[in-house]
Amino acid sequence: MSIQHFRVALIPFFAAFCLPVFAHPETLVKVKDAEDQLGARVGYIELDLNSGKILESFRPEERFPMMSTFKVLLCGAVLSRVDAGQEQLGRRIHYSQNDLVEYSPVTEKHLTDGMTVRELCSAAITMSDNTAANLLLTTIGGPKELTAFLHNMGDHVTRLDRWEPELNEAIPNDERDTTMPAAMATTLRKLLTGELLTLASRQQLIDWMEADKVAGPLLRSALPAGWFIADKSGAGERGSRGIIAALGPDGKPSRIVVIYTTGSQATMDERNRQIAEIGASLIKHW
């Protein structure tokens, strides 16, 4: 067993022997301040990774656009098919120029040779490549099948209805392509620590998230040296922004954090800054 596999296998073990965790309302004060600064709703939840206990939450059962955070769930569904012998990570998928959609920095470079399922998941999570996500959605049967996968996990809230990039439209009061912070946090925890996926697939999923290259201005910008984070960000229309993450000190994750916002007129930089400040408060009061 590799060191990384050992780390993920012992996530519940280490967490069980940690000192009790206590909620700190100071972080919620910052979440509410972010709402004021952005002029928009902000949803927040913080779960203990081992027990699933909610440590703090704000608007945990209000719907927010998922945006690209759905790509972690998508690759979880792909990995479940791999575990069941219905898919192979090494299978190569070929596609054409007509398949390319807006923001496809990886797939646009491989029109000639195609990409493997493993490479597509890596591109979808680490670079948020939209064509990679659409190609992977095709392998599982489309958005409705991802929703069905989530329902089978016990998540009857999260739903995907459309493809990239239309799913980022974020129309107010439109339930399409949305989740709730509580539902997303619980589902992410199941994917990373539950028995739904094999140990190898859980490790692969967290490795992809740990290698995320496009979430630097968010929670990662607030992390002290030595902290662990595996995350996936999302951005959408109407001032929408979000991030889902597993993080913790001492090089291992111990909490799940989900943050979503929508309806702001603020710039992307300002949305990023507010999420980073929430992260800084979380870490300060850990």
Rank of each mutant, 00 (worst) to 15 (best):
A200C: 15
F58T: 07
A133P: 02
L100S: 05
I206Y: 11
W208Q: 01
D250W: 12
D212P: 05
K213S: 10
N272E: 06
L199Q: 12
A185Q: 01
T198C: 11
A225K: 15
G142H: 05
K109E: 12
W227T: 01
R162S: 09
R118E: 14
A276Q: 11
S201N: 10
S57A: 12
S201L: 07
A185N: 02
N130C: 05
G52H: 07
D129K: 01
K232I: 02
Y95C: 02
Q274K: 12
V78A: 07
K109D: 11
V29C: 14
L137P: 02
E61K: 14
R241Q: 06
T262S: 11
I54R: 08
T147M: 09
L146Y: 06
K284D: 12
S201P: 03
G85W: 06
D99S: 10
G76A: 13
L135G: 02
V82Q: 07
A132R: 00
R41Y: 08
M67E: 03
L223I: 14
E61C: 08
R91M: 06
N130M: 01
L191P: 01
T126G: 10
F64R: 00
E35G: 04
P249K: 15
F70N: 05
L188W: 04
I93F: 07
L218T: 03
T138M: 15
I54D: 06
Q265V: 14
Y103N: 07
I229C: 09
W208S: 03
R162P: 02
L55P: 03
L150K: 02
A84D: 12
I278G: 00
T193M: 15
R92W: 09
S104Q: 00
G142L: 02
G141A: 06
Y260D: 01
Q274A: 14
K252G: 12
K213T: 09
W208Y: 06
L219P: 04
L136A: 05
F149I: 12
T187V: 08
A84K: 15
M127P: 00
L197I: 09
P165V: 09
G242T: 02
D83H: 05
T131N: 05
N130V: 01
M127A: 09
L167R: 01
D231Q: 06
M209H: 00
F70Q: 06
I229N: 01
F228M: 10
E169A: 14
V42F: 11
I125P: 01
V29E: 15
M67H: 07
A246L: 15
L282W: 01
T193H: 14
